[in-house]
Amino acid sequence: MAGTGTAHLREPGETLLRVENLVVEFPVGRSGLKVNAVTNISLDVREGETLGLVGESGCGKSTTGKAIMQLPAPTSGKVLFGEHDLAALKGEELRVMRPRLQMIFQDPISSLNPRRKVEDIIAEGLNIWNIGTEAERDAKVNELMEAVGLDPELQRGKRPHQFSGGQCQRISIARAVATDPKLIICDEPVSALDVSVQAQILNLLEDMKARYGLTLIFIAHDLAVVKNVSDRVVVMYLGKMCEVGGPDDLYANPRHPYTAALLSAIPVADPSVKPSERMTLGGEIPSPVSPPSGCRFRTRCPRAQERCASEEPQMQQIAEDHFVACHFPLNPGETLTNSTEAFTA
């Protein structure tokens, strides 16, 4: 899972956003050590596409999203958006690009200022950039509120605490769409919500995408949610990419052992599937301060061999629009077993 390499990237002309060799590191206090949050991630998104980023906590998916937004800027790497490299822009040059990329956050409560009215929150971008006359901005707020299923007349003047979590997330979506962005990064937008509300918001995101011609990067830990919304999925582990592909093939035929393990760990709402018969991954995600050499997944991988420790696997095409970064990928239909005996020898 070293997922270095760019074999999975498409022609630069085809894509709206192209991220090359993104690296994000944070210092650990003043110890001189650093957290390797994201190491050499490359990805791209076509216009109108939804790219899913999936992985467990600590895999760097949220950090990747924020680095694309330059919040904060990555340590190194390119973020090509249109003809600009966002990572190279500074100050005012970057600021004028802001309205074209927006973000929706995980925590609907924390992402709304409790002291501001809903209309001010939604109109924030319009006010900053002085888009339209006051009347036009007003009308835009009304339109956006209706689009996300809120009642402008009753709810414009209210403050976030008067709304439920799901409604707060609707407000966040309206705010993100207000400045007509091309790309919206959704960072775990439904993981704080109840299942029934989650479905409402996922459907709403699809509607908004169609209505406003959006391109989405959808970050989540829930594989089923990511599959539901995505056109292409990137599976991440410990700051690296494991596998990239279209959701239907990737979920049906996971090639990377980590993807397979992740899929088998999801509790299925079906009593005939006995959990004990499924493969469970041992151990926990290693520290990103000192990640394992070679393939970062090797410490937990049932298929790991010596080569995995010494050599970092490169992203390689394994089927049509299906890429994997693994020395020993699974064959289509092959299931992962808990047995590691064959490889420990």
């Binding site: 299942v195 029934s196 509300v197 459907n203 539901n228 279209g246 999801i266």
Partner: peptide, 23 residues
């Protein structure tokens, strides 16, 4: 409704979810 509103792994991508309306 609770069961139907959860996205499932075996559903095709972009399957419209059966959300429960209201609260």
């Amino acid at each position: 409704a609770l069961l139907k509103s959860i996205p499932k792994l075996d559903q095709a991508s972009h399957t419209r979810l059966d959300a429960i309306g209201g609260r």
